[in-house]
């Protein structure tokens, strides 16, 4: 079971955001991607999740090409993404955000809503239970009824993770989960990620915060100017002279 990224290339005008990116990531792994601003990390996520079409190359999930699938289809295949800038449904409460994220609800169609009210009620009760567990797990239960637009940056990041969890994913692409989050909360988010990974959910994590990421993932890739410079265990990768040159500015 793996996510294969084969020679993905993407240009915006004259700017080559991705230049032949090639990575293979096990779907139950904890995998990190680091790199300076403009390295192409978020563009890579957008290509993998289907929000941006690549100019060339292939994306495979468990051996099947998924390039032709829409973003919702890719999510339904078990691969969820979060966004660098949290995209909470700001007028909905935390609870409503999570309830809305549950998949395959009968009450999501008007016919189901008006003609199968019993079924809708049963499902709502079950979803509400899952939501309570998810909020407790992410320590969001205290803000359950707060409109999500009013949450702190860190809580919004947790909510993004929570929404992805509601879809029962196999693999989650996390875009900078620690950016702008206070250090205490970073520790908590990390614990949650480790617990979820132990339960079999894979994570690919884009991060700026090198130190945080090296504590979390056993394997990572370094990107710069649309290319993967190196891949492997954090310690080995960070010793790589090419990486030091590009990412750390050659400081030894």
């Amino acid at each position: 079971m793996s996510l294969e990224i084969c020679d993905i290339t993407k240009s915006f005008g004259g700017f080559r955001a991705l230049d032949g990116v090639r990575l293979t990531i096990e779907t139950d792994a904890l995998f990190g991607i680091i790199g300076p601003n403009g390295a192409g990390k978020s563009t890579l996520f957008s290509v993998i999740s289907g929000f941006v079409a690549a100019d060339a190359g292939e994306v495979r999930l468990n051996g099947n090409r998924i390039d032709a699938l829409s973003p919702p289809q890719r999510a339904r295949a078990g691969m969820l993404r979060t966004f660098q800038v949290p995209r909470e449904f700001s007028h909905l409460t935390v609870r409503e955000n999570l309830m809305a994220s549950a998949p395959d609800q009968t009450g999501e169609s008007l016919l189901g809503l008006f003609f199968r009210p019993g079924q809708v009620r049963t499902e709502e009760a079950a979803i509400a239970e899952t939501v309570e567990r998810t909020m407790a797990f992410l320590k969001l239960d205290k803000v359950a009824d707060v409109p999500s637009g009013k949450l702190s940056g860190g809580q919004k990041k947790l909510l993004e993770l929570g929404r992805a969890l509601m879809v029962q994913p196999k693999l989650i692409l996390l875009d900078e989960p620690f950016a702008g989050v206070n250090p205490v909360l970073i520790g908590e988010i990390m614990e949650r990620i480790k617990e979820l990974n132990a339960r079999g959910i894979g994570f690919v994590i884009i991060e700026h915060d090198l130190e945080a990421l090296t504590r979390l993932v056993p394997r990572l890739a370094v990107m710069d100017r649309g290319k993967v410079l190196a891949e492997g265990a954090p310690a080995a990768v960070l010793e790589d002279p090419v990486v030091r040159e590009a990412y750390l500015g050659g400081v030894s």
Binding site: S49, F51, S70, P71, P72, Q73, A75, R76, L80, R81, T82, F83, R87, E88, F89, S90, H91, L92, E96, N97, M99, A100, S101, P103, Q105, T106, G107, E108, S109, L110, L113, V120, E123, E124, R163, A164, M166, V167
Partner: peptide, 23 residues
């Protein structure tokens, strides 16, 4: 209703709705 939650979510952020597997 559940339908109402989704349309309000669409109003707030359509791409995030797509990212959750809904059209």
């Amino acid at each position: 209703s559940p339908f109402g939650r989704i349309i309000e979510a669409i109003r707030d952020n359509e791409e995030a709705v797509q990212a959750l597997g809904k059209d």
